[in-house]
């Protein structure tokens, strides 16, 4: 029973990991920007939701605020920080440092505005219901899995069936090709940031009701996103999705064998092993060199 329970818990965690990780993977895969502040996007979306919802403005305005906050942050960051850096120097490491700095600023600003304590959105939906004897599932778990399916389905449609989506996929391989099709690579990059940032919103909102929030939560989100992107294979959205789910499951099922302080180590041992043995990731084609 415990194993089934942990698998379900892991699936819920994994679904949310998949969403945030795919957002990072999409941005990284298409623009090669090491967007470490992706965790900050998560924090902004979550706290905007918490702030507006807590003010009693209702569910839909709160979701809208979270979405707008996330997209605005992602797109502005690309325009104001990443674009100038890429213009004079392409090193991904320079971008990484700048992005890391932004993450620190956001974490502390959020702490000053909303307080550094633990906050949570109260809803009966986070209360688990006994499905079969000994196995409890909360309504939010179903919502999480459903949201993940809808958002990732829509993303696949966007990437495969729309011009912008296809251009986005082509951007990483050949920016010149994008230009010859009459599209502006910078516009496509902005699209990648907008879409990638929107993907964290459902995960951020659900987290605000399940585990609750504090300003430092973005750090963990980012590390998991990075791990899932690499384990899944850079440039492979489906691979990242799969890896996100697997990492969530592994983290939860690991409790059968080890104490909870080792679960993060399990995730990163998997990451380390993949880089040594199979750097291309689960579904990746790209080579590491």
């Amino acid at each position: 029973m415990l194993a089934i329970q942990l698998a379900i818990t892991g699936l819920q965690t994994g679904a949310l990991y998949a969403l945030t990780a795919v957002g990072f993977s999409l941005i990284f895969g298409s623009t090669r920007i090491f967007h470490f502040a992706h965790g900050a996007t998560f924090v902004i979306a979550a706290y905007f939701f918490y702030g507006v919802f807590g003010a009693g403005l209702g569910l839909l305005p709160s979701i809208a605020a979270a979405g707008l906050g996330a997209v605005a942050f992602g797109v502005l960051l690309d325009r104001l920080v990443y674009a100038p850096i890429q213009r004079h120097e392409g090193s991904f490491f320079t971008v990484f440092v700048a992005s890391f700095g932004v993450g620190i600023v956001v974490q502390n600003l959020i702490g000053m505005v909303f307080g550094r304590g633990f906050v949570t959105v109260n809803t009966p939906l986070s209360r688990s219901v006994e499905m079969i004897p000994g196995v409890y599932v909360s309504p939010l778990a179903w919502i999480a899995i459903l949201c993940t399916a809808i958002f990732l389905g829509a993303l696949q449609f966007f990437l495969r069936r729309t011009h912008t989506g296809m251009a986005l996929r082509a951007l990483a391989d050949n920016p010149e090709l994008v230009r010859t099709f009459g599209l502006n690579p910078r516009m496509i990059a902005a699209t990648a940031f907008a879409v990638g940032s929107v993907l964290v919103v459902p995960a951020a909102i659900i987290t605000s009701a399940t585990t609750g929030l504090n300003p430092a939560i973005g750090h963990h989100v980012m590390l998991i996103s990075l791990a899932a992107t690499i384990v899944g294979g850079i440039g492979s959205v489906s691979g990242t999705m799969l890896a996100g789910l697997l990492l969530g499951l592994a983290e939860s099922l690991a409790l059968l064998v080890v104490d909870s302080q080792w679960t993060e180590a399990v995730t990163f041992a998997i990451l380390f092993a993949f880089i040594i043995i199979r750097p291309a990731g689960l579904l990746g084609r790209a080579t590491a060199h």
């Binding site: 329970q5 963990h220 302080q261």
Partner: peptide, 20 residues
Amino acid sequence: SFSVPTTAQQFSGVAAQVRA
């Protein structure tokens, strides 16, 4: 008994074990 790291925030797995 279940020890959790100082930085952990996610306890649904531990909760399942506690219930069990």
